[in-house]
Amino acid sequence: MNMQPKTQQSPATQTPAVEIANLSRSFQVGASLMSKGKTLRAVEDVNLSVKRGEVLGIVGESGSGKTTLSRMMLGLMKPSGGSIRIDGQNITTIGRSELSRKVQPVFQDPYSSLNPRKTIGQIISLPLETHGSGSREERTKAVEEMMLQVGLAPRLIHSYPSQLSGGQRQRVAIARALMIRPEILICDEPTSALDVSVQAQILNLLKDLREKFNLTYIFITHDLGILEFIADRVAVMYMGRVVESATAWNVMNAPRHPYAEALLGSVLTPDPKLGLPDLHLGRGFPDPLNPPTGCSFHPRCPKAMPQCSANAPRTTRDEHGLVECHLYPEGASK
């Protein structure tokens, strides 16, 4: 095992680490022999590009399609339409084993992401065993070194997940993901199951590892507050679509889409002088099987106009990023 961090190759920086074009994924729900069932559009026409070494935050609430998106990027689910390119190569042409060397996941729940019947050492060395790298001793050595990298005492190598705290378990999950030196880490809510103080530790660790291993992160979360700390760019998803995408600073300080604004308003900073924010959001949570006409956010949108329920907004791209809202018609952003 090469324990040295990869050095950045300058030509490779030109191709984005991940490029997603017109990606869609739909599911048939309630299909049976007699009826075709309904179509659930989990991800619809998503376009994203992530540069090498960048952290893209994807923020959205449950049902926004962020988890479906992550499963497609891991190659665990086939897109219904569009394409995902990893290092310029279409994901469908990359073999399972090769893809796993490029993209690895870190999951939300450190209790279900570790096999309760295996020791920490066995869990972390699984990627090496799967790829048949190194002898047994070499693998053990590599596991111990990686444990140190993620801040786990090597003597925990023979313990079981049930003996560890939530934070320690998440460190194990991160160590496992890094064992085969992937370029891209897809973190799906990696801290939302953790306590505040532990969350801070894990976020700090992820930030350190990113520099150390020159990693690209796709960081999925529902908490915009975390993204300001860790992300370079932020994509806001609502009902399967990316409704706004811009630099983290822009989204946090000058959100354009009303939904991004509402998400930002929902970040509760510990300031006792402020009361609860008024989001002016409608309560009618849309049924994903019967999405609203026009812009899918209009039933909840405080700024909804007549045209919002009539037709879907076009995507506007400008120097601030991308936004999909009738408030920002194409070419009118200047």
Binding site: L74, P105, L126
Partner: peptide, 8 residues
């Protein structure tokens, strides 16, 4: 899922 993602 993790095992699948690792290529097992």
């Amino acid at each position: 899922t993790a095992a699948r993602a690792v290529g097992a």
